[in-house]
Write a protein that binds this DNA or RNA. Structure first.
Length: 703
DNA sequence: GAAGTCACG
DNA sequence: ACGTACGTGACTTCA
C-alpha cells in the first residue's frame, strides 16, 4: 500500500480504532491485534468485538462468531441472549446531589460505556434548551439528572435540582473521555444540544460513541422504522412511556421543564435504559449479520459530521427571498385573474378536483383521465400534453395554470417558508438531516428540506441566490458528475461504459451513437432517458411513456441497450436473484436494503420492489461514497491547514462549503481529491469519479 | 390524514 | 391481466 493511501486509511480508522481499543482495554483488559488488519484487509467481524463479547461471557456467541469471521456477506442468526428483566421505572434514580452525580460518573467511567439521553424544551436541536440528562449503565440501572426544571410561573417553587453549570462541568469530562463509549439513540440530536450547551466551556463534544438508531438502520433498513418506541416494541417487547402521556396534548401541553421530577425521571431514564438494551442486542448482530463494516466505515463516523453541519447552518438572505416573494405574488395574482376570466367564473385553481372539472367537464377538453379516486389527473404531464395540442380549446388556460402552479410552489415552499426558517440567533437556516430516512442509505433533509431547492428552471434557480456566504467568504459547490452511471458501469462491469468514462466522453452522446447510430438533440435526449431508465429498473411500458413510443418499440431499444452494453442484463438478473434469495440487496460497502415485498402476492407490488431492488445497490453505493468523503473531509482540510473551510450541505451527489475567499485555491484540490478517492482503499473502482467545483458569492453563483 | 402535485438527486 | 421509471419532503385541498 502506498504511503499516501495508508495515511488516508489511518485517518479514516482513527476514531474507530480508538473507540474499539479503549472500550476493550478498559472493559476487558485483553491485548488487541491491529484493527486495521482485521477490518480493512480481512473484513469483519473485528477483534475488539470478540474481546468485548468474551468479557461479557457470551461464549456461545463467541464460538459462532469465530465460525463466521472469514465468511462472505451472509446472514447468521444470533443465538438468543438471555432476556433482560422488564423495565422497572421505580428503580430509576433522580440525581439531585453532587455526591450522587459523582458516583454515577465514576461508575460509568469504570465500566467504559454508558447510554445517554438529553431532555430539552423542543424538537429542533439548534434551538432547544437543555432541561436534563439521563444515563444508563446496565438494564434497570439508570438515572435522570434534572438541571432546568421548574414551572414557567416565575413565582412557582422550583424543585430541588443541581445547578446547570455544575452538572455540565462534571459531565463534560465523561462525555469527552476517549476511554468511555457513549451510546445514544439518534445521538446527533444530543450532540447538537450538548455542543450548544454551556458556551463558557466551549460546549460538550461527545466522543467516542455508538448510535443505536444508525445500528438499527444498518441492520434492518427496509424492514421497519427505527424510532425508539418501535424498536423497543419489536426487540424488547417493551412499550415505552408515551411522550404525550408525560407532557399532555393540545394547549395544556407542558414543556419538559414543567414536568415534575418523578414523572420526568421515569420517562427520561427509561429512554437511556431502552437505548442501552437495544445497543446490547445490536452490537453483536452487526458482526453476525455483516453490517459492522458499513456501520464503522461509513455511517457511524458521519453522525458527528452531520451534527456539525446542522449546527453550522447556512446563511440565507431574507431580502432576496422577500423580493422574490413579492414578485411571485404579483404574477400569481395576475394569472389568477386571467385564468378565472377564461373560465368565466372563479374557482380554486389549487384544487386538482375543481381544476379537473373546469378543464375536462366545463371547457370540454378531451382526453381527461380519471384516477381511482374519480378525479381527473391534472399533473404537469397531462397539462403539457394539452398545451402541446394545437387544436385543444384549453391551450391558453392550461399554459397559464402551469405558470400559476410553478409560481405558487416556489412561493409557498421556498421564498415564504425559507424566510420563516431563519434562526434569529444565528441568521442562518439549520436543516435536519436524517441518516435513516432513505432506505437506500441516502440522507434526507427536513425542516427545511435543503435537498430540493430549485435549479432546473431559471425562475426557481433565483432562490439559490439567497444562499450566501458571510462577508469575506464564498460558497463552494462540489458535485460528482454522473456518479450513478459511473457506478453502474463499475458494478455491472460494462466495458463500453467504463471506457467512455475513462476517456472522458459525453456518455449520453456515446449512448445515442450506440443505440441510434447518430447523435443529435433528439437521439441524445432519448439516450439520456434510457440511461436513467436503466438505473431505475427499466420497464418497456415506463420507457414507452417517457419516450412517447409504443411498448414494443421501447422493448426494442432496451434489447439494443443490453446488446451494446453487456453486463447490464446480467447485473439485473443477478441482483434480483440475490435479493429474492436473501431478502436484501447490498452495496459495494456491504450496506443492506431489505425488500420484503419482493415476495408480495400482488404482481404490481412485486414489480415495484424489483425496480427498487435494481436501483438500490447503485444509489446506495453512491450514498456510501459521498458519506465516506464527508467523514474524511474535516481531517483532510485540517491536515491541509484549512480549519476555516466549513462543510454546510449535502445534496446526494454534491457538497456545499463556506470558506474564506483566500482559501479557495488551496481548498479546491483537497476537496476534489477527498471526493474523487472516497471509495479507496476499501474499493478499487474501475471508473474514475469526476468532481466538478464551482465558486461564487452564493449557491446560485457557485454552479 | 389521504391524495394530488411538484421541488430535488 | 395488471399498468409503471428509483429515492426523498413540503404544501394545498378536502373528506
Amino acid at each position: 500500500m502506498k504511503p499516501s493511501k495508508m495515511r488516508d486509511n489511518l485517518i479514516e480508522h482513527a476514531e474507530m480504532a480508538r473507540l474499539s481499543r479503549k472500550l476493550v482495554e478498559l472493559a476487558c483488559d485483553v491485548p488487541l491485534p491491529d484493527p486495521l488488519d482485521e477490518l480493512e484487509l480481512k473484513g469483519i467481524p473485528d477483534a475488539p468485538l470478540r474481546a468485548f463479547l468474551e468479557h461479557h461471557g457470551f461464549r456461545t456467541l463467541l464460538n459462532r462468531l469465530s465460525a463466521v469471521a472469514d465468511a462472505p456477506v451472509e446472514h447468521h442468526e444470533v443465538p438468543g441472549l438471555e432476556e433482560d428483566p422488564p423495565c422497572d421505572h421505580d428503580a430509576y434514580e433522580t440525581v439531585v446531589t453532587e455526591e450522587a452525580l459523582d458516583r454515577w460518573i465514576a461508575e460509568a467511567t469504570h465500566q467504559g460505556w454508558v447510554a445517554i439521553d438529553t431532555e430539552t424544551t423542543g424538537v429542533d436541536a439548534t434551538r432547544a434548551e437543555l432541561v436534563g440528562v439521563s444515563m444508563a449503565l446496565v438494564p434497570n440501572k439508570a438515572c435522570y439528572i434534572p438541571i432546568a426544571h421548574g414551572g414557567s410561573d416565575m413565582f412557582a417553587e422550583k424543585p430541588v435540582q443541581l445547578d446547570r453549570a455544575t452538572v455540565l462541568a462534571k459531565l463534560k469530562p465523561l462525555f469527552e473521555d476517549p476511554a468511555v463509549l457513549k451510546i445514544g439513540h439518534n445521538l446527533k440530536y444530543d450532540m447538537i444540544v450538548l455542543g450548544r450547551a454551556y458556551k463558557d466551556l466551549g460546549g460538550i463534544d461527545v466522543a467516542p460513541y455508538d448510535d443505536s438508531i444508525v445500528m438499527s438502520f444498518d441492520l434492518d433498513a427496509g424492514l421497519h422504522g427505527h424510532g425508539m418506541d418501535e424498536l423497543a416494541a419489536t426487540h424488547l417487547s417493551h412499550s415505552c412511556i408515551a411522550y404525550k402521556d408525560v407532557v399532555g396534548t393540545g394547549k395544556n401541553q407542558l414543556g419538559f421543564h414543567e414536568v415534575d421530577l418523578k414523572a420526568a425521571t421515569r420517562y427520561a431514564a427509561e429512554d437511556a435504559d431502552v437505548t442501552l438494551r437495544l445497543w446490547r442486542r445490536f452490537k453483536p448482530r452487526l458482526a453476525y449479520e455483516s453490517a459492522t463494516r458499513v456501520y464503522e466505515m461509513v455511517d457511524r463516523p458521519l453522525v458527528s459530521v452531520i451534527a456539525g453541519m446542522e449546527r453550522a447552518g447556512v446563511k440565507v438572505d431574507a431580502g432576496v427571498l422577500s423580493r422574490l416573494s413579492d414578485e411571485f405574488s404579483k404574477q400569481i395574482a395576475a394569472l389568477e385573474e386571467e385564468i378565472h376570466g377564461i373560465a368565466g367564473f372563479k374557482f380554486t385553481i389549487g384544487s386538482p378536483k375543481q381544476l379537473g372539472d373546469v378543464l375536462f367537464d366545463k371547457m370540454g377538453i378531451k382526453g381527461g383521465r380519471k384516477g381511482k379516486s374519480g378525479v381527473y389527473s391534472t399533473d404537469v404531464n397531462e397539462l403539457e400534453r394539452i398545451a402541446a395540442d394545437k387544436d385543444s380549446p384549453g391551450r391558453e388556460m392550461v399554459a397559464k395554470v402551469l405558470d400559476w402552479r410553478q409560481l405558487s410552489k416556489l412561493k409557498s415552499t421556498y421564498t415564504d417558508a425559507l424566510q420563516a426558517q431563519i434562526n434569529p440567533e444565528t441568521g442562518r437556516v439549520h436543516t435536519s438531516y436524517s441518516l435513516t430516512g432513505a432506505q437506500t442509505g441516502r440522507l434526507s433533509s427536513t425542516d427545511p428540506n435543503l435537498q430540493n431547492i430549485p435549479i432546473r428552471t431559471e425562475t426557481g434557480r433565483q432562490i439559490r441566490d439567497a444562499f450566501v456566504a458571510e462577508p469575506g467568504n464564498v460558497i463552494l459547490a462540489a458535485d460528482y458528475s454522473q456518479i450513478e452511471l459511473r457506478l453502474a458501469a463499475h458494478i455491472a462491469d460494462v466495458p463500453a461504459l467504463r471506457t467512455a468514462f475513462e476517456n472522458g466522453d459525453d456518455i449520453h452522446n456515446m449512448t445515442a451513437m450506440e443505440l441510434f447510430g447518430e447523435v443529435n438533440r433528439d437521439t441524445r435526449g432519448r439516450a439520456k432517458t434510457i440511461n436513467f431508465a436503466i438505473l431505475y429498473g427499466i420497464s418497456r411500458w415506463g420507457l414507452a411513456g417517457r419516450l412517447d413510443v409504443t411498448p414494443d418499440e421501447a422493448q426494442a431499444m432496451i434489447n439494443r441497450y443490453f446488446e451494446r452494453f453487456p453486463g447490464i442484463n446480467r447485473y439485473i438478473a443477478d441482483t434480483l436473484n440475490e435479493a429474492k434469495a436473501r431478502g436484501y440487496t447490498t452495496t459495494l460497502f456491504g450496506r443492506k436494503t431489505h425488500f420484503p415485498r419482493l415476495k408480495a402476492a400482488n404482481p404490481n407490488e412485486r414489480a415495484g420492489s424489483e425496480r427498487a431492488a435494481i436501483n438500490a445497490p447503485i444509489q446506495g453505493t453512491c450514498a456510501d461514497i459521498i458519506k465516506r468523503a464527508m467523514a474524511r473531509m474535516g481531517p483532510a482540510l485540517l491536515e491541509a491547514g484549512l480549519p476555516n473551510v466549513k462543510m454546510l450541505m449535502q445534496v446526494h451527489d454534491e457538497l456545499v462549503f463556506e470558506l474564506p475567499e483566500g482559501d479557495v485555491e488551496r481548498a479546491k484540490p483537497v476537496i476534489e481529491r477527498v471526493m474523487a478517492t472516497a471509495a479507496e482503499p476499501a474499493i478499487k473502482l474501475t471508473v474514475p469519479l469526476g468532481v466538478e467545483i464551482g465558486v461564487g458569492p452564493s449557491w446560485g453563483a457557485a454552479h
